[in-house]
Design a protein around this nucleic acid. Structure first.
Length: 587
DNA sequence: GCCGTTTTCGGCCCGACTGTTTTCAGTCG
């Protein structure tokens, strides 16, 4: 799996360099499409190359197949090396500046030798741009402004930050009598892990009234821009929200269009085109210009011979083919979740008492829960000593009497030590009903040692769930170096579930690896990793990530009824079965 | 550079907007 991403990245870079050379845009697109298709492959590209089937990959023809072959065999690509000498790869940054596309970037590099945003900013301020072909005073001014903003750019928002804000704005605007429909759009509706802009779409016959109402919402700090059917505001929390208003008749086509992804839309338009039809944000039209669909998304998908595709899947990663063949996944839903298996209490680094957490879990409609406080070596998080574990065990038995039939499982988030052993002796590990094994230290081990470390932990008979399997923290801490493919295979073999952790800065596994996990037959567990009652809410982000990974309820252990869960927990530790009968728990 | 019940050339997603132009190219979403 690892080289797939290398090849995809190589093609993305080639596309950027060709863009800067102002090459044929369709040739550039060919590289971009190939990169995307290679990313979406579930098979190892090296294996495909060995079988001589590279040109069977959609978007890869003879020329690209040869380039992939050369790159895989030699680790280099002559064509790319040559391109890099013609145009420095840093110049690709210029394309990020709004107002600069292929043509202007090319002119900037060719005539002024500009290759960085800093150089661009300087040149704009010295008025060196206005006389270039295709530029003028207005463009120069805009570039200076946008480049300046980019230099001190605010990062993309985490889904867990953007979504609550969007929902607040929507809840304020929704009751307005002129609003006929309202929904988030863009990457937010697709539930991507990070969001560029918060986009909200409204259907209304009175756009001017909506624009006015939007500007006067209580959360608005500043109106940034306004027009007849659109408006941008800055909220008191400093987030930008863009609103667009469309006619109710065009709601479906507009929602489809503004939800994206761009790649999904392009593919969809291709399907329309195959019929001689035309799809735009205004609707689906036949060759005489008659409107075939547009009021709802369902109408449009159906007219194109497709099942309606949930927004989380709209990335052109095979969802269109699946929709045509009526084999879209039945994506897991939040209300199918019966338990949260990863919750911290104030015994370790959580903020709330076990009682409060249990009551909140009952309120959320869960049937059971597992506490997963930290283990002894994680002193910064007040990890529990063996003595405390025994005390907690007694407390949980007591809570189970009090809250029956709600069931509290005594779990733990046990550190995987650098050598792959677990952070408690076996007699303590056997006390737990459920054990999450996680890495919290020595994150920079070399790949082979990190892989061996995780494999050893998975093989331990007490291990039930591999917690946040890659250790990444958005946006700054990358995943640790590990052969995840091998880890997921082992997890499938030992029936250890891999976690989809719902903390907004983790979402770990991510969508792509979640999909790979279920392809390999692994079970997953969606968890909040809550450190306070309020954060039980993070389950929704775990579910969103799972859905983006094509995960169905049958893959998710915490959709299971308690009885099934207990059977699974007993699979390698019969001691747990003994405990179930001694506590008089029935299914 | 890819692709093909409009197959080996001539297409390749669509429409709006802006500013630079003198009829339209470039950019964006």
């Amino acid at each position: 799996m690892r080289r797939n991403e290398d090849v995809a990245l190589l093609f993305d870079h080639i596309a950027e360099l060709l863009t800067l050379k102002n090459e044929n845009p369709f040739r550039i697109r060919a590289y971009q499409i190939a990169a995307q298709k290679i990313r979406a492959l579930s098979d190892d590209i090296e294996e495909i190359a060995r079988q001589g089937r590279l040109d069977a990959i959609p978007g890869v023809g003879k020329a690209l197949a040869a380039k992939i072959q050369e790159y895989l065999e030699t680790g280099r690509l002559q064509y790319y090396e040559k391109l890099k000498q013609e145009v420095p790869i840093t110049a690709a940054d210029l394309l990020e500046v709004p107002g600069i596309g292929p043509a202007r970037a090319h002119v900037l590099y060719q005539s002024l030798g500009i290759t960085t945003i800093a150089e661009l900013l300087e040149a704009a301020r010295e008025h060196k741009l206005r006389d270039l072909p295709g530029f003028g005073p207005k463009v120069e001014e805009r570039i200076a402004r946008e480049a300046g903003r980019l230099v001190q750019r605010t990062r993309r928002l985490l889904l867990g930050v953007a979504l609550p804000h969007a929902e607040e704005v929507i809840s304020l605007l929704q009751p307005h009598p002129a609003v006929e429909a309202i929904a988030p759009a863009g990457s937010l509706r697709r539930m991507k892990e990070t969001i560029g802009d918060i986009d909200i779409l409204v259907a209304s016959r009175q756009p001017d009234v909506i624009v006015e109402a939007f500007a006067n919402l209580s959360v608005v700090k500043e109106v940034l821009a306004t027009g007849s059917t659109r408006s941008s505001i800055l909220t008191r929390d400093g987030l930008q929200v863009d609103l667009r208003i469309v006619a109710p008749d065009e709601w479906g086509s507009a929602l489809l269009y503004f939800t994206g992804s761009k790649e999904h839309n392009i593919a969809l338009r291709g399907l329309a085109q195959d019929q001689g039809w035309k799809l735009s944000e205004y609707g689906l039209f036949d060759r005489e210009g008659r409107r075939l669909a547009g009021r709802t998304e369902e109408e449009i998908y159906h007219a194109l011979g497709l099942d309606w595709i949930p927004p989380e899947l709209r990335e052109d990663r095979g969802e269109l083919e699946a929709a045509r063949e009526r084999r879209l996944p039945q994506l897991v839903e939040l209300d199918e979740i019966r338990a949260d298996l990863h919750v911290h209490s104030d015994w370790s680094d959580g903020h709330d008492s076990p009682q409060r957490i249990v009551e909140a879990a009952v309120t959320r409609g869960y049937e059971y829960i597992a506490f997963a406080d930290h283990s002894q070596s994680l002193t910064v998080a007040r990890g529990l000593s063996p003595q405390q574990v025994r005390e907690q065990h007694r407390l949980i038995a007591h809570l189970n009497e009090r809250y029956a039939p709600f069931r509290i499982l005594h779990g733990a988030e046990v550190n995987i030590l650098p050598d792959g052993t677990l952070d408690y002796p076996d007699e303590i590990l056997e006390l737990f009903d459920l054990v999450i094994v996680s890495v919290h230290s020595a994150l920079d081990l070399p790949r082979d040692r990190m892989t061996a470390r995780l494999l050893r932990a998975i093989r331990h008979p007490a291990a039930d769930i591999l917690g946040h399997p890659t250790g990444r923290l958005l946006p700054n801490r990358p995943p640790y170096d590990v052969d995840l493919e091998q880890i997921l295979r082992a997890a499938a073999d030992y029936r250890v579930a891999v976690e989809i952790n719902g903390q907004p800065d983790r979402l770990d596994l991510d969508d792509v690896w979640s999909r790979r996990a279920i392809e390999l037959g692994a079970l997953v567990s969606t968890n909040s990793d809550a450190h306070a009652v309020r954060q039980l809410e993070h389950m929704r982000y775990a579910i969103a990530t799972a859905r983006r990974g094509w995960v169905e309820a049958r893959h998710v252990v915490n959709t299971w009824p308690l009885g099934t869960m207990l059977e699974w927990l007993e699979r390698r530790l019969p001691a747990r079965r003994y405990r179930r009968s001694s506590q008089g728990i029935r299914n």
